[in-house]
Every structure is written in structure tokens, then in C-alpha cells.
Amino acid sequence: MSNPGDQQAFDRCRQALFGASVLRSSLSPIILWGRARGAALTETPLTQFAPDVYAGLYAPLFMFAGTATVTFDEDEQLYKAVLPVGFRNRLPPGQFPYPFWHDKTKWSSYQATVALQFFIDPDSDLIKVAQFVPGAPSPTVLAEAMEAAASFDGHWLWTDGNGRTQPQVTLFDGLYRADNPHVAEIESRYRALALEMREAECDSCHVPGNPQKLKRLVLLQTPAHAAGEIRRILESVRNGDMPQDDTGIEKPLPPAVKQRLLARAEAFEAILTAARDWENRHAAE
């Protein structure tokens, strides 16, 4: 394994997994991700990700030993592949999809990860659930986690000392070519969408803090997370399935808010499509 702060190793891993990788092509259209807690999957809180988001932002945070064991989990009726890993806990803050250190338990668990486990559907051969398996965190890790949690300022997106939006990994930095003419506009259109999502109270649920304690959280707080979910955002808002009240029942948006939200979401989807199309056209160069 490389050094946990090795930026070049991380970049190569991201590009390889985000590209035409076996991992990416083996992911279900919605993959569930989170910490292994020793409970049944149905009872375990997990976050829903599009394959792009998992392959480009989360899986590369781990260094793989290159081995795996596969068994059949009788309780879940799914194959379980266990891959020994280490966590890249020394990368700059902007290389993590969001500040995992907002929660000391989460950050210490990530840092103590000893393996990933993938649950694979025997019918489709696709990975439905991926979990990180923490070992025993060291006292040093726990102390660092508590310090980091105390310093979190509540912002999922922030601006660094050079005026750059962070986390920069969520702006497709390093995943799309630097000369892609559409990438620069992704951030500005996301910010326009984010304002409307705030008006529609999307951020009262779809953020890493999981204020509604959802068992199947969807994250929308960065360009990359929203990009992975843009079609579901559009569909659920058009159909009136979102937002929901605190009992999980649809709560209609005022028509003007809904119209603005859809317009911004469509504009964001259009620039994402243009950026991806450009990448595909120039892939051979």
C-alpha cells in the first residue's frame, strides 16, 4: 500500500476507478454505502449513491491490499466479498467528498477501517451494498477525531485560502480533462441550483449530518453528489414525490418554488450532459 497522504497514488486510483473500471461496471444503479455495524442490512443506516459518485469519490479513499475472500451470506442471501484495505486519512481536506470529521465516530471509524465488504446480488452479479469495516481505533485516532469534530464549522462546501471552492474533488477535479470547456460552469450552475434547493428545504434532509435520521440517505450538498442524483431530483420534484414532511409524506412545493427549482435542475443537468458528451468525444485523444 502507498502512503495514506500520497496525492498521486490517490489521483491514479480515482481516475482508474471512475473510468471504465470493473468496479464501476459492477455497481448497481443505486449502491448503498456506509459503516458495517454488525446488524442486518435492512436495519443499517446507509447512504444511496450513483455509481459515478461511489467510484469517483468514495472507493478511491481506500488503499487495497489486492486480496479478497468471497463467501455466501445466508442471512442476507447475497455474496459477500471482503477486501483488506487501509484508509487514506492524510490527504488534504478537499480530497474528501465532505468533512467526514464533522462526526468524531464517523471519522475515527473511517480511519480505523481494515476492510471493505461488498454485498453482491447473485442474480445480477452487481454490488448492491458496500460497507467499510472499522477495526479497533487507536487512542491517537480517537483523539484526532475528537479534535477534528470540534473544529468542524458546519459547512459542507467552503472556500479555501486561494479562493477555490472545496472539496475540490466534488467539482470533478481530476476526473474530467482540464481542457473540458464545460467543467467551469458546473460549479456556478450547481450554486444556482443549491439556492433553490435551500428554498425548497432540500437541505433539511439531504446533507451528511442526516438530521431526519433517514435509513437510506441521499446526499445533494456538493456538485458531484447532486450530479449523481440529478435525474432522481428532477423526477421526484416533477412528480411531487419531494419534498416530504416529517412523517415521510409528500409536501407540495409552492408552484413558483417548484418551477424555479426545476429550471435550475434542468440547467445543471444540461451542463453535466454537455461535459460528459465532450469527454466521450475526446476520449480517444
Binding site: 431526519q212 435509513k215 416529517d246 412523517t247
Partner: peptide, 18 residues
């Protein structure tokens, strides 16, 4: 009222189709 809302939501999350 809050804990009853949470009970409603927990059931809806598991057993109400999206």
C-alpha cells in the same frame, strides 16, 4: 408528537414505495 412523526417516517421509509 415528534416521536410519533418519527415512527410514521420509519415505517414510510421502509414500506412506502418512492
Amino acid at each position: 408528537v415528534a416521536t410519533t412523526s418519527a415512527a410514521c417516517k420509519a415505517c414510510h421509509e421502509d414500506f412506502r414505495a418512492r
